[in-house]
Amino acid sequence: MPHQDWSGFSFDGIGTRWEISTPEPLGNAVRRRLREVVEDYDRNYSRFRADSVVAGLAREAGTVTLPSGASGLEALFRKLYRLSSGAVTPLIGGSLEQLGYGPGYALQALGDPVPAPRWEDVLVWNGTQVTTSVPLVLDIGAAGKGQLVDLTAAVLRSTGTTEFLVDASGDMLHSGTEPLGVALEHPYDPTQAIGVVELHDGALCASAANRRAWGDGLHHVLDGATGRPIETVVATWTTAATAMEADALATALFMVDPTVLEEEFEFSWLKVYSDGHAAFSAGFEGTLFT
């Protein structure tokens, strides 16, 4: 974790806890800007609030304009959609709501799982402009929190802050001269660690079926082609240059063979399967406990 002398700034946003650590305390103007960036992102992309931009598409088909960062999301999702044969998709929101994970947090399935609609049938996404032919629940959660971590880091860098750790409840971006040792949470026991990884000038993101789970076998990592929760993988960790890519790849690892992803992305990874065994890339700078 950050040097014990570093200063911390904490706040809540997009339904998660943010911890930003820096060698010197952040000024009030910077703190205000960080909160604004997170709130603006939520106001555009959250499917959990009725006043967001994407919420309008769930009520009625049409066209909306999103912030400039939407172009990066489009390119990333388009690539992962192709590599996963539709399993990783920004249209998974309806499938999640069918299983009870929606704005009301009913956490009770409305019926049998339903696949996400095919991108090519219902969605035209060109940069910042999104057009739907039917009402759709757009969900960029696979990469959104990571992108927001990158955006908060950009705020820090714009003020001349070169050493920091942004931690959005486990999705981290580090900048600094000294590497950090980060514990890897046990997928079945949050009070325990299965290992430790060294993070230095890059992002570390995790995805775990236990993080948002409810009911019998229901959790938030779904296969878009079937609408069903993944059963073979329980947790993944990835390191990459940006938190957006690390975040998205942590989800993609639930559904896509790592060798397929490695052909088009530069990242390292650790994958824990439901039978208890683990696999990791040659470049993963971590140690697993026995």
Rank of each mutant, 00 (worst) to 15 (best):
M1W: 06
M1E: 11
M1Y: 00
W6C: 03
W6T: 03
D12H: 13
G13W: 09
I14K: 04
G15A: 07
G15I: 05
W18A: 02
S21T: 08
T22Q: 09
P25E: 09
L26A: 00
R33I: 01
R33P: 00
E36F: 01
V37P: 11
E39V: 06
E39K: 14
E39T: 11
D42G: 02
R43W: 12
N44I: 01
N44V: 10
S46I: 05
A50H: 15
A50K: 08
S52P: 00
A55D: 04
G56L: 02
L57Q: 00
L57I: 14
L57C: 12
G62C: 09
T63Q: 11
T65G: 07
T65S: 07
P67E: 10
A70F: 08
S71Y: 12
S71K: 14
L73W: 13
E74K: 15
A75P: 03
R78K: 13
S84F: 12
G86E: 07
T89Y: 07
P90N: 05
G93D: 14
G93W: 13
S95F: 01
L96A: 02
E97H: 11
Q98N: 04
G100K: 08
Y101G: 02
G102E: 03
P103H: 01
G104F: 10
A106S: 14
L107N: 01
V114T: 13
P117Q: 09
V122H: 15
L123G: 04
V124K: 02
G127M: 05
G127E: 05
T128N: 05
V130A: 07
P135L: 07
V137C: 07
D139R: 06
A142D: 10
A143Y: 04
G144C: 11
D150S: 10
L151C: 00
T152R: 03
L156I: 02
R157H: 06
G160H: 01
T161E: 14
T162W: 13
F164Q: 00
D167T: 05
A168E: 01
S169G: 15
M172E: 14
L173A: 13
L173G: 09
H174T: 12
S175I: 05
G176S: 07
P179A: 12
P179R: 00
G181Y: 04
L184I: 14
P187G: 08
Y188M: 13
P190R: 15
A193W: 08
I194N: 01
V196Y: 11
E198W: 13
D201V: 03
R211T: 03
R212I: 09
R212T: 09
A213Y: 03
A213P: 07
G217W: 15
L218S: 07
H219Y: 11
A225P: 04
I230V: 15
I230W: 11
V234C: 13
A235Y: 09
A235E: 11
T236E: 00
T242R: 15
A243V: 03
M244K: 14
D247M: 01
A248W: 00
L253E: 04
L253K: 03
L253P: 04
M255G: 03
M255T: 02
D257L: 06
P258T: 07
L261A: 01
E262V: 09
F265K: 12
W269F: 12
W269A: 06
L270N: 10
Y273P: 04
S274R: 15
S274D: 12
S281T: 11
S281E: 12
S281M: 11
A282E: 15
E285L: 09
G286H: 14
G286Y: 13
L288H: 12
T290R: 10
